[in-house]
Simulated scan of single mutants.
Amino acid sequence: MSAENIFKITNFLCQDLNLPHESVQLALKQTHSSRGTLPIVLWQYGLVTLSQLDRVFEIFEFYSC
């Protein structure tokens, strides 16, 4: 995924879902170290609800293409 798309997804998470920037950065680091996907890491850490997770998957899929 390009740096530009990661930036857009990060903005979505912080602005639309009101996640703290630090939490998003932690999830990104965990994604790289555990080879998990960002939406799953966000959910595993309790940073998003199931309904928010659906929105994250939609945005993630849109920017991953």
Score class of each variant (00 low, 15 high):
G46V: 12
N11I: 03
E22I: 13
S64A: 13
S2C: 06
K29N: 12
L38E: 05
Y45Q: 10
S34N: 10
N5F: 13
W43E: 09
F7I: 00
F7Q: 01
K29Q: 12
G46M: 13
M1Y: 09
P39R: 07
L19Q: 09
Q44P: 01
L13E: 01
L38N: 04
E4A: 15
H21R: 14
Y63N: 03
F60H: 12
F7R: 00
T49I: 02
F62D: 02
V24W: 14
H21I: 13
D16K: 13
Q25H: 09
K29I: 09
E22R: 07
K8Q: 04
A27W: 14
F60P: 01
Q15V: 09
L42F: 15
V48W: 08
V24D: 05
V56S: 07
T31G: 01
L53P: 03
L38P: 03
S34A: 08
V56K: 07
L17H: 04
S51P: 04
S64I: 08
V41R: 05
P39F: 11
E4R: 11
V24E: 12
L38S: 04
S33M: 08
L28N: 03
K29M: 12
L42N: 12
L42H: 13
K8D: 01
L50Y: 07
I40Y: 08
L26W: 05
I59F: 10
M1I: 05
Q25L: 14
F57N: 03
V48S: 01
N11M: 02
E61I: 15
F60I: 10
P20Q: 13
L17V: 11
F57I: 06
Q44G: 03
S33K: 07
Q52H: 07
C14Y: 02
T37C: 04
L50G: 00
R35S: 04
I6V: 11
E61W: 14
E22Y: 09
E4S: 11
S51D: 14
A27G: 02
L26K: 10
A27S: 10
F60A: 05
L38T: 05
L42I: 14
Q15Y: 06
M1K: 04
G36H: 06
R35I: 03
P20T: 09
T10W: 03
G46I: 14
P20K: 09
I9R: 00
P39T: 08
G46P: 04
K8N: 01
F7W: 05
F62N: 03
L17A: 02
F12C: 00
I59P: 00
I6M: 06
V41W: 08
S23W: 14
W43R: 15
Y45G: 01
G46W: 15
L53N: 05
Q52S: 04
